[in-house]
């Protein structure tokens, strides 16, 4: 049976996590269809049609899909689910929001945030903040699955799928979006960045967080991340948070500055290729996972590091 992947998009382009999810679908095997629900979303649909491995893009274009509310989106997915053996979406805050609703309405279990595909009905997923890895077999006729983006390569964008329009479902009118405050940044997205500079409580204040870490991130072309402690202290907004309940990242280089390394933080970054830790406490747990540890006062180390990078 075919696999339905729900595209995440902003009506003009598709989000990178969709590409990783398509790769997970190719591991299952079978024809892959992308479902895209939006409003005036032709540009996003065109981008979706270029995703390699996808044979068909199903587009539902209606005013009540503009914000992709979980109630309306789940109802649309459920109405189109019967011919599919698998329904996949990225394990982003959007996918995590609507997919369990899809699963419940189909009366099937959801397998959350898979990190590998063993077979068409068996998947691998981290539990206990990534301290344990479980292999899970589903007995349900339709497998509803969310996918951890960092665990799968991005699919190519040289495909040419057919675009078909899908009739929109009803507007359930259950929730209304009244505003979004999105963090504006010229930097790469955290979950897709090759280099991440991340700060913790040790940064001391929002001012020093920005003053010391931004030049370093700029120099390295890096995204900025943070520990929960730094977000709770108000140094940076919530969307900077890396960890069990924040963003899961796996860049080539992760530089943790003034982060002690609680297991909840390690859960979000321990799959990074190279980890650098800068902390004045030589006993900090972050050093147990760091490839390169530098024990020292970050207020002295960071300027020196910037100077060394020229």
């Amino acid at each position: 049976m075919a696999i339905l992947v729900i595209a995440e998009h902003d009506n003009t382009s598709i989000k990178a996590a969709t590409l990783n999810t398509v790769t997970a679908a190719t591991r299952i095997g079978g024809e892959i269809h992308l479902l895209l629900a939006g409003c005036a979303c032709a540009a996003a649909a065109a981008a979706a049609a270029r995703v390699a491995g996808v044979s068909k893009v199903l587009v539902a274009d209606a005013a009540h899909y503009a914000d992709q509310s979980p109630e309306n989106l789940a109802a649309l997915v459920v109405a189109n689910a019967s011919s599919y053996g698998h329904i996949l979406a990225p394990a982003t805050t959007s996918g995590k929001n609507f997919m369990p609703r899809v699963a419940a309405l189909l009366d099937v279990a959801q397998i959350s945030e898979i990190s590998a595909v063993e077979s068409a009905d068996t998947f691998v997923r981290p539990i206990y903040a990534g301290n344990v890895v479980a292999t899970i077999k589903s007995t349900d006729p339709i497998k509803v699955v969310t996918v951890r983006g960092t665990a799968f390569e991005a699919a190519g964008e040289d495909g040419s799928a057919a675009i078909e329009s899908l009739s929109a479902g009803p507007d359930l009118g259950l929730s209304k979006l009244s505003g979004r405050e999105l963090t504006k940044s010229e930097r790469p997205e955290l979950t897709a960045a090759k280099v991440i500079v991340s700060g913790g409580r040790g940064m001391g204040s929002g001012e020093s967080f920005h003053k010391l870490l931004e030049p370093l991130a700029d120099k390295l072309g890096a995204a900025l991340g943070a520990s929960r402690a730094a977000v709770d202290a108000g140094f940076v907004p919530n969307d900077y948070q890396v960890g069990q309940t924040g963003k899961i990242v796996a860049p080539q280089l992760y530089i943790a500055v003034g982060i002690s390394g609680a297991i909840q933080h390690l859960a979000g970054m321990k799959d990074s290729k190279i980890i650098v830790a800068i902390n004045k406490d030589a006993e900090a747990p972050i050093f147990q996972v760091a490839d390169y540890g530098l024990v020292g006062d970050l207020f002295e180390v960071l300027p020196a590091l910037l100077a060394e990078l020229g």
Partner: peptide
């Protein structure tokens, strides 16, 4: 509906230098 086939500990990262 889901059966746990097995659970394992992920490969450990070792401290570097």
């Amino acid at each position: 509906r889901l059966k746990t086939v097995k659970v394992t500990e992920p490969p450990k990262r070792t401290a570097g230098i």
